[in-house]
Each structure stands twice: as C-alpha cells, then as structure tokens.
Amino acid sequence: MGRAETLALLAAGHVPERYRRNIGTIGAAGQARLLEAKVAVIGAGGLGGTIVELLARQGIGYLKVIDGDTFAAHNLNRQILATEHNLGMNKAAAAAARVTAINAEVTVDAVPAMLCADNAAGLLAGIDVVVDALDNIETRLILGRTASNLGIPLVHGAIAGFTGQIATILPGDPGLDRIYKLCAGQAKGIETALGNPAATPALAASLQVQEVVKILTGVGRPLSRQLLYFDTELNLFEIFTLG
C-alpha cells in the first residue's frame, strides 16, 4: 500500500493494520499528520540511528537523513544501524536502507554529507521538524541558528556516559546557545572522557522521537523552553526551564 492510499483510508475512518497500535495515542488524524510530515534527522549514529528507526515505524511520511560519516568498529556498541557487515558504509545510506525495509510508505532521502554553515539552509528548506542527532557542539550551534532562521522546530538531544539531555526549541524559543552558552568554541563535551554506552543514546533518541510526534500531532506537551536532563547513574530525570 502506498502513502496516498493510506491517507485516503485514514480520511475515510479506516486504519491500516500497520498503524493500529499508534491510533489509541495519536488518533487517525494524528497518524495522517505524521504521514504528511517532513522530518530531517541530522546525524545517523547513536541517536540518529534509533531516531530514524522509530520515526519510520511511527509512520513519518518523509525523512531526510544527513550524515557524511561511515560506520567503524567503535560504533558497534551502541549505533543500532551499525553491523559487522556494513563497516565502512555511509551512515545516511544505511539509514535509508533500514527505513525502506521497515516501512515502504516512507519516502527517504539519504544525504551523505556533513551539515555545515554553507549547506544547512538548503538542506533544511521545506522541512517541518529537524532532529539534532549530532555528535559535536559546533555543528549543533550551526543547526540551531539555521532552524531558528527558517522557523523550523528543532528537537535537541545530546548524551555522554549515563547522562543525556533533550529539549524542543520551537520558533521564538531560547535557542541552543542557551544550553551551550559557556565555553564558546568547545567542540566536544564530557563524552570524550565518559564515552557512550549502549543504552544511553537509545534512551535519549526515544524521548526525542516522542517530541517529534507531539509537535506534529499536537498531542501532549512538548519540552518547549525546557530541558529534560537524565542521569541514570543516580536515576535522575529532571526538567529545567530555559527561559
């Protein structure tokens, strides 16, 4: 079944079997909104791999996955798209293949390039929600400025060790510079010392996907102007106000 056919069925009150377990939470109208939505995922590593997987299963109609990196053995501990058989493969291309295997109704574009100041606006034009699944602060700030300039909601996530943080930045909200305001020019965080164990990116990625679903369907309350911080070493889940 194609996406147009599914949308026609949803409009007529019929829910295709593959989406039935979504409907109690977001409704048929919410599912239709997801199938009509365009989401860009920037980074297809630890966060991005799980984000792409879940967005495809949830039924986002269009995904653009941007990553110029290739899989290496040190990705295998946590990056759901990395396998012993695809080491050396571009991460965005692997994500696109996975999306197609999960849900052929999803149109997916793989961009095998790193997002940068020169290409960001062009790559994000026409996108409804952008997901920050990057692995460095410098590019995050470029992404944040671009999303703000284009008026696109941004779902931020970052991890290190047992810790992670998630924030939704709607147009007009305080931006990523509020989160990363000190130590300008520092490209990396404490993940250089703590590493990224298997479960942390999956946890943060799942919370980011819930934010995307809430933004697009209007169900629930996104983490706008807030930051959710978790530290599973001490079982802390706290929400802070960004202003």
């Binding site: 980074g43 590593g45 630890g46 966060l47 991005g48 920050d132 699944a133 990057l134 692995d135 460095n136 602060i137 995050r140 996530g157 970052a158 991890i159 290190a160 810790t163 992670g164 943080q165 305080p174 509020r178 990363y180 000190l182 130590c183 520092q186 490209a187 990396k188 965080g189 404490i190 993940e191 990224n196 990116p201 911080y229 706290e238 929400i239 802070f240 106000t241 960004l242 202003g243």
Partner: peptide, 29 residues
Amino acid sequence: IMVNGVAAELGRTLMDGDRLGLFPPLGGG
C-alpha cells in the same frame, strides 16, 4: 547553570536557600 531549576548566568547573585545546579557539557550523539 540552573538556579532553582531555571537557567542562570555566572554573574547571578544567589539568595539564601537557593538550589544551584551545575552541569558539564554533553556533546555526544
């Protein structure tokens, strides 16, 4: 920097009973 759960600056003057949260940068993905 969070003071009583709200983002704050290095120059913020603190009050009796304040809760000051200090966070290192997370950059991984």
